[in-house]
Amino acid sequence: MTGSPVLTIRGLTVDYGTGTGAVRALRDIDLTLHRGEVLGLAGESGSGKSTLAYAVTRLLSPPGVITGGEVHYHPPGARDAAPVDLLALSPRRLRAFRWQELSIVFQGAMNSLNPVHTVHSQLTDVLKAHRPGMKAAERTARAEELLSLVGISTDRLTAFPHQLSGGMRQRVMIAMALALEPEIVIMDEPTTALDVVMQRQILRQLVRLREELGFSVVFITHDISLLIEFSDRIAIMYGGRIVEEADAAEIYRDPRHPYSDGLLHSFPALHGPRRELTGIPGSPPHLSAMPAGCAFHPRCGKAFAPCAERVPVPAAPDGEPARSVACWLHHPVPADSV
């Protein structure tokens, strides 16, 4: 059961580059993450998922620039307190905010961990920076506790990253993200390089930790089948926009956007009768040559006249206030497009 909002994103827009050569990577993103919720973010490569994560955490590398929108964090137990404007935080306050209230697990743990430092050194470094009053013995005890949380033997504290398996390195990154018990954990395709058995083990541990510690999760992946299993809600991205958002069960049973339906029919069902895998024809559009109207219409088998002319705005279909979809199939067609 999810609670009040913990993170709200409104109108977030991101460009790569400036001036006439700028390329728009995110376009007016609106999302709400609720307390204790797992929000899945799905889409093909290049849809803007990772850019969204880095924009929210203000980790965008040049030439990425946030050109519009708001990102607000709502502290726990403070109904009357003003939300924190993440885009307005000073570098000092932002440094204190990261890991303390919001942490991120990056794609590719081997590249995220420092190869010349032990697991102990990297876990305690977070505590040393944010908990300067902790004694060395207390930091070590906390590091041991964190490894136990993610199912790794404490004798691995003295190991270097290359001495761990891929799954163990990823779990060390999850342990590091949970070190300061943040309210929000953003996970950017954390299981992409792992086999399916290890993927399921890590996801089961993540679900257990979420239930035990009560943090909220934004889980980013191109594999929508993973999200269906353990997400509360799913947002589908295409061409830098949110094209559909709904409860995970609703997305699975009745996807409304043709792109969502294509993603769902691109992987085999684990249960029930066999079904034909249809996939999605064509390739995602290049950001510098985005089609007019709905960005998906050149690949959509259900496209009609207004799809190539007007950009559909996410809205709730009739009788379904809990979901939104950006598709002319489910909204009134503009009179001048008929």
Rank of each mutant, 00 (worst) to 15 (best):
A179M: 06
T154Y: 07
P182T: 06
G64T: 03
K135A: 14
A109Q: 10
G166P: 09
M110T: 13
P75K: 09
L86C: 06
A177D: 01
P182C: 05
L94K: 04
V105C: 08
D155S: 05
L123G: 02
I174Y: 12
V126L: 07
T154R: 12
H72G: 08
G167K: 06
A175V: 10
L59H: 03
L86W: 02
L180V: 00
A141P: 01
A136E: 12
L86R: 01
V126K: 09
A136T: 14
H130I: 03
G166C: 08
T118D: 11
I66W: 01
G167R: 09
G64W: 04
T158I: 11
L164G: 05
Q100H: 15
E101F: 11
H130R: 06
I186C: 06
P182I: 02
T140R: 14
G166N: 10
L102R: 01
A82C: 01
N114I: 00
L60G: 11
S165D: 04
I186D: 01
K128A: 14
T140Q: 13
R93H: 12
Q122M: 04
I104M: 15
A78E: 13
A143I: 00
S153T: 07
A88W: 13
A96M: 07
R156H: 14
L178P: 00
G133D: 14
L180F: 01
Q100L: 00
R131V: 10
P76S: 11
A129W: 04
S165G: 02
D125R: 11
R131C: 15
T154D: 00
L123Q: 04
H162D: 10
Y73H: 04
A141V: 01
T124H: 01
R79N: 09
L89F: 11
H117I: 04
L60K: 03
H74S: 06
G166R: 05
V119N: 09
T158Q: 12
A88E: 13
G69H: 04
D155N: 15
P115K: 14
H117E: 09
G77Y: 02
H72E: 10
R131D: 14
G133F: 09
E101V: 00
A109H: 09
L60F: 11
R93Q: 13
W99A: 10
V172C: 07
L113T: 06
P161N: 02
T118K: 08
T158M: 10
L59G: 09
V105M: 06
D85N: 08
R171V: 02
M168E: 10
L146M: 13
A141N: 03
F160S: 07
S121C: 04
D85A: 01
S90K: 08
S90R: 09
A82M: 11
A141T: 04
P75W: 13
T124N: 06
V119E: 09
V116H: 05
T154K: 11
L59K: 04
E181I: 00
T118S: 15
S103H: 10
A159P: 00
E181R: 15
A141Q: 08
A137F: 08
N114F: 05
G69E: 00
S61G: 12
P182V: 02
G69N: 02
M168F: 09
E183K: 13
L146Q: 08
A159Y: 15
